[in-house]
């Protein structure tokens, strides 16, 4: 990756690879921080501290991580009690069983929602998130309102997502760190007894695994 990119290779999530030597198609000046990013990267490559190919390969890894992976984990846990037990005992190992590799050193703790407990995850200090299984976090997860308020007024925060938790259900908020990440195992919705694993996975959205909404069969949600 020696060259800066034109912006026209970023049509949303569809492109699955980078274009290391793509000609620059527009003459928009590069932003200051983009110049800094290019310069830092090139200096590190010149000094052989990182490989030229590693950034491109890691972009491919990042692009391959979407909430569909987490949804697969949740659906398996709903249909296979032994897997669920292993998942709750060691989230990372159980995800690896399903072929989801962890490209970092993080631990994954899976938090089960029940009739008594609703879990919510946050990172108050920055933006730690279970990226290997969910991909990159949404912007709101990284911004002040969610990070500030989730730990002290989770019911109000959840209400803003349209999620009303009964008073007799405890809310557990887990604050992520650089090394410890969380994933919510949401409750399987009623009326899905006949669903197979793929149909169940299709119900499980990103936000249900952050814990800001419950899984539902009766409305379409964006992931």
């Amino acid at each position: 990756m020696g060259q800066a990119h034109g912006h026209d290779d970023d049509h949303g999530r569809d492109h699955d690879h980078d274009h290391p030597h793509a000609p620059i198609a527009d003459d928009t000046p590069l932003g200051y921080y983009e110049i800094m990013e290019i310069a830092v990267r090139e200096l590190l490559i010149e000094r052989r501290l990182i490989g030229a190919d590693e950034i491109r390969r890691q972009i491919e890894v990042l692009d391959s991580r979407t909430p569909a992976l987490g949804a697969k984990v949740v659906a398996r846990a709903w249909t296979d009690p032994a897997f669920k037990a292993r998942l709750l005992a060691n989230g990372r190992k159980a995800c690896e069983e399903l072929g989801i590799s962890f490209y970092d050193d993080t631990e994954l703790i899976v938090l089960e929602n029940t009739d008594k407990v609703h879990n919510l995850i946050v990172c108050t200090l920055c933006s730690c998130y279970p990226r290997p299984v969910l991909g990159l976090p949404p912007d709101w997860y990284k911004l002040r309102p969610y990070r500030a308020r989730a730990v002290t007024e989770p019911r109000a925060v959840l209400a803003e997502f349209g999620t009303l938790i009964p008073d007799d259900v405890e809310i557990h908020v887990s604050d992520s760190t650089a090394m410890v990440r969380y994933l919510v195992l949401p409750k399987r919705p009623p009326g899905t007894e006949a669903y197979d694993e793929d149909a169940l996975a299709a119900l499980v959205t990103r936000d249900t695994m952050i814990g800001v909404v419950d899984v539902s069969t009766d409305r379409e949600r964006p992931r």
Partner: peptide, 15 residues
Amino acid sequence: TDLGGLSGDAISRTE
């Protein structure tokens, strides 16, 4: 960066 427990605006679901 230590924001936990501070006040904050309504959550704007930007992405």
